[in-house]
């Protein structure tokens, strides 16, 4: 019970702040609440569906398939798969973590998990199209072609660094 309250402490303080802002008509507080509810609505558009899809993924996808294609013994094509998965990820970086955990749990290696997270941050397809139309296709292409190799290299290095340190990707529902 106490640990539950602790987890929600920031949310409780925030709720009190918003209520007080409404009572005293405190404009910055109301503006912050507006921004919060906008973001909440955006999240509701996909967050519950994404978590259910992750749940289905974990029960339906065979461990052997993921291990073979994305595991320790996987080859270079594995990076292609993880970038493709990243391209189709919706939302933002925050949604990549639960998905990364799902592929890690079903047997993907750490370098693939980190590549996925990095690529999901920089190469989501809808976002990339948006960028190309506002900043320019040339810019987007240069950015992708330079960022992705760096993400792959740093993911390999990070895996090497964590090797033998007993690092594991965690998930809140396991605790």
């Amino acid at each position: 019970m106490i640990s539950q309250i602790k987890k929600y402490s920031l949310a409780i303080v925030f709720a009190l702040f918003v209520i007080a802002s409404f009572i005293f008509n405190y404009n910055p507080g109301l503006d912050i609440f507006n921004k919060f509810s906008d973001f909440l609505l955006t999240m509701l558009k996909f967050l519950p569906a994404v978590f259910i899809l992750i749940g289905l993924f974990e029960t339906w996808v065979d461990r052997e398939i993921i291990e073979k294609h994305l595991g320790e013994e996987s080859n270079l094509i594995a990076y292609g798969w993880s970038i493709l998965l990243a391209g189709t990820t919706v939302g933002g970086l925050y949604i990549a973590f639960p998905i990364a955990y799902a592929i890690y749990k079903t047997g993907a290696s750490l370098r693939i998990v980190f590549t996925y997270v990095g690529a999901a941050a920089v190469a989501r397809i809808p976002m990339t199209l948006f960028e190309a139309s506002f900043v320019g296709l040339k810019f987007t292409l240069i950015r992708l072609l330079t960022t992705i190799p760096l993400i792959i290299i740093s993911s390999i290095l990070l895996e090497k660094y964590l090797e033998g340190k007993g690092f594991q990707v965690q998930s809140p529902e396991e605790n």
């Binding site: 967050l47 519950p48 978590f51 992750i54 749940g55 974990e58 639960p98 998930s171 529902e173």
Partner: peptide, 11 residues
Amino acid sequence: GVKKGIKKLKK
């Protein structure tokens, strides 16, 4: 799978 997803969402 669906149950698992809902549990994840809650946590």
